Simulated scan of single mutants.
Amino acid sequence: MIHFVLLISRQGKVRLTKWYSPYSQKERTKVIRELSGLILTRGPKLCNFVEWRGYKVVYKRYASLYFCMCIDEDDNELEVLEIIHHFVEILDRYFGSVCELDLIFNFHKAYYILDELLIAGEPQESSKKTVARLIAAQDALVEAAKEQASSLSTIIAQATK
């Protein structure tokens, strides 16, 4: 089971967090500070697994971001590395060569993609095509809602003249 997902920049800024286990806000802040210090200081030639507090933290650096997932000690690290890579591939497909700014300005879409991949810390969908189709359907719903809201505001503006 995945306990949490963190995306941390090389400067130590948190870009995305998703918690699947209950942590208080104080514990979350401590976990983020502790793990970012631990992961950011590791050399690039060291392995991508860290034992931490009876768990394993699996991380992978893509460009300027570290994608980190905390799992149980007996879970398969290579499977989690594959989940991270799968998430990055879908982000790449959606944003077209994803970068840190895409995640900063479109964080809600990154969360939606992550929610399509993982539910309650367990892998949900392994097909990139299915996830892409679901994201396109969500985007179509958002656009339809925006158009409807725009037309309603136009009607209201005309009625109040």
Rank of each mutant, 00 (worst) to 15 (best):
N106V: 01
H86S: 10
S36I: 12
D139E: 15
F49E: 07
V88P: 04
A137S: 12
I113G: 06
A157V: 06
R61I: 09
I155W: 05
L114T: 05
F87C: 11
T160N: 14
I2N: 13
K45Y: 11
R33I: 01
L38P: 00
Q25K: 10
K128A: 03
C99P: 01
L118Q: 05
V98A: 13
E100G: 11
C99D: 01
S64C: 10
E100Q: 13
L117E: 08
K30E: 12
Q11M: 03
Q124L: 15
A136S: 15
G121N: 06
E116T: 00
V58F: 01
M1N: 06
F105C: 08
A159M: 12
V31E: 02
M69W: 02
A63Q: 01
E116Y: 01
E122I: 05
K161R: 03
K18R: 14
V5A: 04
Y66H: 09
R42S: 11
E116L: 13
D92I: 09
I39T: 03
Q148S: 13
Q148Y: 11
K56T: 12
C47H: 14
A140N: 12
V80S: 12
L134H: 15
A132L: 08
I113A: 09
R42K: 15
E51P: 00
I39V: 15
G12R: 07
D102C: 14
G96C: 11
V98Y: 01
K45N: 11
A149L: 13
S24V: 07
I84R: 01
G54E: 12
L7Q: 06
L101M: 15
T160Y: 12
A149C: 09
A149H: 08
R15Y: 10
S127P: 09
L81R: 06
E51G: 06
R15S: 06
Q25E: 13
F107Y: 04
V5C: 07
Q158R: 14
E79F: 10
L103G: 04
L35D: 02
C47T: 13
D92T: 09
K13S: 04
R61L: 14
T17V: 08
V80I: 14
A140H: 12
I39M: 05
K146I: 04
H86D: 03
L134S: 12
I156K: 12
I71P: 02
K30Y: 03
E89C: 10
D75Q: 12
I135F: 09
S153I: 08
D75I: 02
K129S: 13
C70Q: 00
D92F: 09
D102R: 05
E143W: 06
Q124N: 15
I8Q: 13
D139L: 03
E89R: 10
R15P: 05
I155C: 06
T41A: 13
V5M: 07
I32K: 08
V31D: 00
